[in-house]
Design a binder for these strands. Structure first.
Lengths: 235, 235
DNA sequence: GCGTTCCGTGACAATGCTGTGACGGTAGCG
DNA sequence: CGCTACCGTCACAGCATTGTCACGGAACGC
């Protein structure tokens, strides 16, 4: 079979021997592995094809691991990307800062392959192990994150970038109510300053875009609470 | 704000000094902390009020941490519950097995509080830091905090925001009588100034909203005391 | 039975919340 | 540069919700 079914791990690390070792062990475990020693290159490759998990070295030539991490967390597309930091024992203080910057876990060199693989498994399982690739469906709507396409009742919908991310977010958590602040954090970003009422406007634009004539509105308003992707009637 | 907004961490650990230390540091970080040294009791408490994150010691008197972990992973309600294992340095092999059993992370004793807190933050962020909200049931009524929906006998009920919070509060403490002041503190807020009699009006609105024709009233009035959610079957 | 206390009920004015259209600003693109 | 698409903010209207009150009836103690 091709490698496309396997979880895809990107290693960002410049010590060649370590990379060889990691690649050998991870591929033996059934992962698809790519690597790069350059932070900037990593950013590009992640942008064009986001991995399922990132192994990130703290010490890097062009861009520090922590900086790369920060950049990834700033983008909505990679905000959920599982990241494990590789750090030398002496840099433990930095690793702590790394976690706060947005890494999900860290491991200190030297480490046992066994421990690393266990952590990778735990992290992949938690993130659903195939984060970005599955189509999202609800009622008669289908959104394909890969091809960036939305379809309702066979006809393609035209959504703006924000509307797309908004719908994607709600599709990932159907039937759950989110406050405007929740939506802002998830769709716009954590440190962005935007009026909460802005969500209303985009909800309206989303509604206008997805609700054709005669079709029911699947965006439910919950007064004094927020919005949810749900049918108003009971299923 | 009350503790209900803070992330709730349950510590399962039988070394009292360690618990004291953890509690002190975690509460300082703004977490709500509970603890128990008994695995069985932990299971009960998690069942009735699932925490946002679990700190779990490997060595426990009645039930080993790994067994508790396994049990939690078997139940749908706690399958996603973030778990961090506490383990002694010498037990690292076990910790690896722990991760495969379903723990999300582990940390070896002795550890720095700093590192632990960083991991807690990372894990909470990953899990959406959304508290596990379970459906609340009583008699033939079901309230789902996540979807903000109330159902009785299969039909959806329309409640205003205050009525919803009121019902949610009573559902969390069934069969218990609360004075109007209690209700005001819990549902309206501690520093809000509202006439106690206002509760009466909302109780009436709640009754009107949830009691369909031919259905019994599950809101019981206790004269000179307050209200309770209970079946009023007194001869 | 009778007075007193307490609660249910309907009405109402004030407030709060959301839908909607419009507007100016900006980034991308030919 | 002009054009287009998109974004964030605002003002306003319409409606839902809220807190309070007055009235009357029910429950209670004696």
């Amino acid at each position: 079979m091709s490698d496309h079914n396997k979880p895809y791990i990107l290693i960002v690390e410049d010590e060649a021997p370590l990379v060889t070792l990691l690649r050998y062990n991870l591929e033996k475990q059934g992962f698809r592995v790519e690597d790069t020693g350059d932070g900037g290159e990593a950013l590009t490759r992640i942008t064009e094809a986001p991995p399922d998990l990132l192994l990130l070295d703290w010490m890097l030539p062009t861009m520090s691991g922590i900086e790369l991490c920060r950049q990834l967390r700033r983008r909505p597309a990679t905000r959920q990307l599982p990241i494990i930091m590789l750090t030398a024992r002496a840099e433990e203080q930095d690793a702590v800062r790394g976690l706060d910057t947005g890494a999900d876990d860290y491991i200190t060199k030297p480490f046992s392959t066994e421990a690393l693989i266990a952590r990778i498994r735990a992290l992949l399982r938690r993130s659903g192990s195939v984060p970005q690739k599955l189509k999202l469906n609800f009622h008669d709507i289908s959104l394909d994150p890969a091809s960036h396409r939305v379809i309702r009742n066979g006809r393609a919908l035209h959504l703006g970038p924000t509307e797309f991310r908004l719908l994607e977010f709600f599709l990932r958590h159907p039937k759950r109510v989110f406050s405007r602040e929740d939506v802002l954090n998830a769709v716009w970003g954590r440190d962005i300053h935007v009026e909460p009422r802005t969500v209303d406007v985009h909800i309206r634009r989303l509604r206008k875009a997805i609700n054709g004539p005669g079709e029911i509105d699947i965006v439910r308003t919950v007064r004094a609470a927020g919005y949810a992707l749900d049918l108003d009637e009971i299923a």
